[in-house]
């Protein structure tokens, strides 16, 4: 296992995120320990879209929580923009879209988006303006004053997306953000996300169960094995956008599905 040495080599600034020999256990209720991640290592190059593809329980959310500094690895290192998460990191450069939308039910859409700006000292007026503009970017410009319960699932996802984008992060962590949307809405969200990525050039880590979603979005796919999660395969996707329904994308999806079938019967999709 890698120990953090004081003379550790300077980390590569071209990597938005880097995982080095990351391991993680959880203590279960009965006192036994559950190994969730084992010696995971990969990079997220600045400006790229990296998709983490893995079965349920393989530690994908745990890995993102580590990247967001909510959890520390038992072993190994997690670097955000070259800085270890146990040290000082400029967290305002990181956005996190959770597996659920986590909208505060007592706030309107625009105030939910504005929440992400309330860390600093920005004035209320400017926060509102930016939140409203960000809502417009995700196509909800007219719904700023709606409460979460008045919005559809797809609209709530957009609000959550707007909240993670409004700080204009350099890194966006996305944990199965669209898994609960219908196929059509999901395709729309993919197009929107790729457009925003083109315009802003942030790095995206996109966790998914869905092979096709990974192929449509990612520049790189990191495939996890079932728990304990390890990097099973890493591959680049050098296909032009849009990829939905193109023969090359379909071939890749089929190949990956076959690889998964060969890897384990435990893979739950």
């Amino acid at each position: 296992m890698t120990q953090t040495a004081p003379h550790a080599p300077p980390s590569d600034p071209r990597q938005a995120l880097a995982f080095r020999h990351v391991s993680k256990h959880f203590l279960r209720g009965d006192g036994s320990s559950l190994e969730v991640l084992r010696d995971v290592g990969f990079d997220v190059p600045a400006g790229s879209v990296v998709s983490i593809l893995g079965p349920s329980g393989s530690g994908k959310s745990t890995l993102l929580n580590m990247a967001a500094g909510l959890l520390l690895p038992d072993d190994g290192r997690v670097l955000v923009l070259g800085h270890e998460t146990s040290g000082t990191v400029d967290w305002s450069r990181l956005g996190y879209m959770f597996q659920d939308d986590r909208l505060l039910p007592w706030r309107t859409a625009v105030d939910n988006v504005g929440l992400a700006l309330e860390t600093g000292s920005m004035g209320k007026r400017e926060r509102r303006e930016r939140a409203q503009a960000q809502l417009a970017v995700v196509g909800l410009g007219e719904f700023g004053s709606s409460y979460p319960h008045q919005l559809s699932g797809g609209m709530r996802s957009r609000v959550a997306l707007a909240r993670s984008l409004v700080t204009e992060p350099d890194i966006l962590l996305m944990d199965e953000p669209f898994s609960r949307l219908d196929a059509q809405t999901r395709t729309t969200m993919h197009t929107e996300l790729l457009r925003i990525h083109r315009e802003r050039g942030m790095s995206i880590v996109f966790v998914t169960h869905d092979v096709e979603e990974a192929v449509i979005l990612a520049d790189r796919i990191v495939m996890f094995s079932p728990r304990p999660g390890r990097v099973h395969t890493e591959l680049s996707v050098d296909l032009a956008h849009p990829r939905l329904g193109t023969p090359e994308a379909l071939t890749l999806v089929a190949e990956l599905r076959a690889a998964i079938a060969g890897m384990s019967a435990d893979w739950v999709i």
């Binding site: 500094g69 996190y96 959770f98 309330e118 860390t119």
Partner: peptide, 8 residues
Amino acid sequence: ELAQTLRF
């Protein structure tokens, strides 16, 4: 946890 990620 959301508040934590926003560093409130």
